[in-house]
Design a protein around this nucleic acid. Structure first.
Length: 654
DNA sequence: CTAGGGTTAG
């Protein structure tokens, strides 16, 4: 039985009514002459592919007029609802959808599920739950629910990350639907619990499942990896009887997201070795891992795969490549990928802006931001502004930084987070405006976190403000008692001021917390692809003697060019001779000497180090880049330094 | 109808 809708409600929704569109139906053929099943099929095809609202309105009018077998209506209507929900912006509100639903009598379970799906797709959070309770109220037990109605409820809970909603979806699936043993429903419930962060509840559903499939297993792997427990994820993955590409990918991204890039690439290699198809999602995980490693050769290898498989055009993959190249020190390569992309979104721009910022190319970063908002009309977000603000701070552009901080609030309505404040504090602090930085911290509307105080402490170290440093460090030690860097920073600040008795107090404090300084280490990727590790003053490298001799020769050569070691970079209370000896043991100098030894003049030497580069090494590299005509790219723990012709891209701000 | 995705920080 079909009840006609009194008046197509869509007409009321949009004034002015668009002109009747050309129907995508057989032209000139009187519609009712088509046999009903064929007509239904044609309509279905039209509904599924109709791109615009006018088309859909027209189709809707046809659907309610044309004699169709009642059985095909729910399916046709559900497709119509889905199309309407997918339109940008969504044009059909819930009352319209309810109208469509009530056009079929008796109430149809399939259409009810489609209605829930419609509610889910048209946005307002948890709307499916309201629709569900409406349907229950209106039809009671007359209207049974299909499993996928409950999947939609779970999905709605997943999207809103509400544990309450997940539990409600769970309860209703069991009590109303009786689907406590339906695999699809159980799987979506697991996902809902995972999204809300309740691994225990997810695991409980999983454990009680009689028929687990790959999707159930993968969901649990994701549950553990999202909670940072890769050991359990590994364990579950190992027990999973049949693994498909998605399951493997979950492991790759799990490792990548948990800062275990080597493992991520191992798993990715495993996928390739098994001959598994690589898609854009698995590739994205590998790209993220390479970005973390900063491994140039690996990076090129991943991009080769991206291009071979054709996923290089994907926005997510492309944005990842931009980020990866920037983090590997190849900023021009990043730029090349960026400009080659047809589709760019806020991730793409943010990655490129942050990349330029970390390479000290502040004006380009700001120019790109302008292009993003003025020409490309891409809306910036809070992350974009982190990039813009760090660009300013790495270049000492205080005025610009102030301007964009204000723009962010006033023009884009983004409430500054503690991270944004940290950037501003860093900006002021580096530029020597330590008092203004302190004022800003005091005026903050959000509670300052470790990053904010840390930026301030860093500023104190640069500008020798040992008294403020002590106050700042108090806050930091409360917030991050385990973080070694803070103690080192305070200790160095005090040492530069010659307050040796206070330095030893900090040392005692560190010993009390059982903290040890991270040893300085520099990495150099050799021509053979092997990564050479250098620790400060170590003798472990097989070519140590050669390296040290070459270094001494370089020092002598540079001294002729006016190099005077910056002894104050050594914050130990020792004599000058010892200071110079210690300076020449710095890991980045060893790596540099080895690089020059193996690559020769005129090359580009890339070094990754775990700590901030010291003044003396910075000077040394600047001079060397001129004298030996080499390019040196150093990634320290904060940013990149490009040394060329005696200059560094950081311009002295680091 | 159910599983895996990218950008930020001293």
């Amino acid at each position: 039985m079909v009840r006609l809708i009194p008046r197509p409600p869509l007409a009321r929704l949009h004034a002015p009514p668009p002109p009747p569109p050309p129907p995508r139906l057989p032209a000139g053929l009187p519609l009712p002459l088509l046999p009903a099943p064929a007509l239904a099929a044609t309509l279905l095809e039209a509904v599924s592919s109709s791109p615009s609202l006018p088309h859909l309105r027209h189709l809707h009018a046809l659907l309610v007029r044309v004699p169709l077998p009642a059985t095909s209506l729910p399916f046709l209507f559900s497709r119509l609802l889905r199309r309407l929900a997918a339109l940008q912006p969504p044009h059909a509100p819930l009352p319209y959808a309810l109208n469509v639903f009530s056009a079929v009598s008796p109430p149809d379970p399939f259409l009810a599920a489609a209605l829930l799906r419609f509610a889910f797709l048209t946005q307002p959070p948890l709307l499916p739950f309201r629709v569900f309770s409406y349907l229950r109220g209106a039809h009671g037990t007359e209207l049974p629910f299909l499993p996928f109605a409950f999947s939609t409820l779970a999905k709605s809970a997943t999207a809103s990350r509400s544990l309450l909603a997940a539990a409600a979806a769970h309860a209703v699936s069991v009590l109303v639907g009786g689907f406590d043993r339906h695999r699809f429903v159980e799987n979506s419930l697991i996902s809902a619990y995972v999204a809300c962060g309740d691994v225990g509840a997810a695991r409980k559903v999983f454990d009680e499942m009689v028929a687990k499939d790959v999707i159930s297993w993968t969901s649990i792997v994701v549950a553990y990896s999202r909670s940072g427990d890769m050991r359990s994820a590994e364990e579950v993955f190992g027990r999973c009887p049949v693994k498909d590409m998605v399951a493997w990918t979950a492991m790759v991204t799990g490792y990548a997201q948990n800062a275990m890039p080597v493992k991520a690439l191992e798993v990715f290699d495993g996928m390739e070795a098994l001959g598994m198809v690589i898609d854009e999602v698995s590739l994205t995980g590998a790209i993220s891992a390479c970005a973390q490693l900063g491994a140039v050769r690996r990076a090129a290898w991943v991009q080769e795969i991206a291009e071979r498989t054709g996923f290089g055009n994907n926005v997510v993959v492309g944005s990842g490549l931009v980020d990866m190249y920037a983090k590997c020190g190849l900023i021009d390569e990043a730029s090349k990928v960026f400009h080659g992309m047809q589709e760019k979104n806020v991730y793409t721009y943010s990655s490129m802006i942050a990349g330029l910022a970390s390479h000290g190319r502040a004006s380009e970063a700001i120019a790109l931001f302008k292009e993003m908002v003025d020409r490309a009309n891409v809306e910036p977000n809070h992350v974009t502004f982190i990039g813009v603000l760090t660009a300013c701070s790495h270049a000492g552009m205080v005025g610009e930084g102030r301007y964009y901080f204000a723009q962010m609030k006033d023009r884009y309505g983004i409430i500054p987070s503690a991270d944004h404040y940290a950037c501003m504090v860093d900006l002021f602090g580096r530029a020597g405006l330590v008092d203004e930085a302190l004022d800003l911290v005091r005026s903050m509307t959000v509670k300052p976190h470790g990053g904010v105080w840390g930026a301030l402490l860093g500023a104190c170290r640069i500008h020798g403000k040992s008294e403020i440093a002590k106050v700042v460090a108090e806050h930091l030690f409360k917030l991050e008692p385990e973080s070694v860097g803070n103690y080192v920073l305070l200790s160095n600040t005090l040492a530069s001021a010659g307050k040796w008795d206070e330095v030893s107090k900090v040392r005692i404090l560190m010993r009390k917390h059982r903290l040890k300084k991270d040893p300085a280490v520099s990495l150099f990727e050799g021509r053979d692809g092997l990564v050479h590790q250098f620790f400060a003053s170590d003798n472990v490298h097989p070519r140590t003697q050669e390296i040290k001799k070459a270094l001494l020769d370089l020092v002598a050569k540079l001294k002729l060019e006016g190099y005077v070691p910056i002894l104050s970079s050594i914050v130990y209370d020792v004599n000058d001779e010892e200071k110079e000896r210690l300076l020449m043991g710095h890991s980045e100098k060893l790596a540099l000497s080895f690089g020059l030894l193996t690559l020769g003049s005129g090359c580009t030497i890339r070094i990754i180090k775990n700590l901030r580069i010291c003044d003396d090494c910075h000077l040394f590299m600047r001079l060397l880049s001129r004298v030996e005509s080499v390019e040196i790219v150093v990634r320290d723990n904060m940013r990149f330094h490009h040394f060329k012709n005696g200059e560094c891209s950081c311009g002295g701000f680091w």
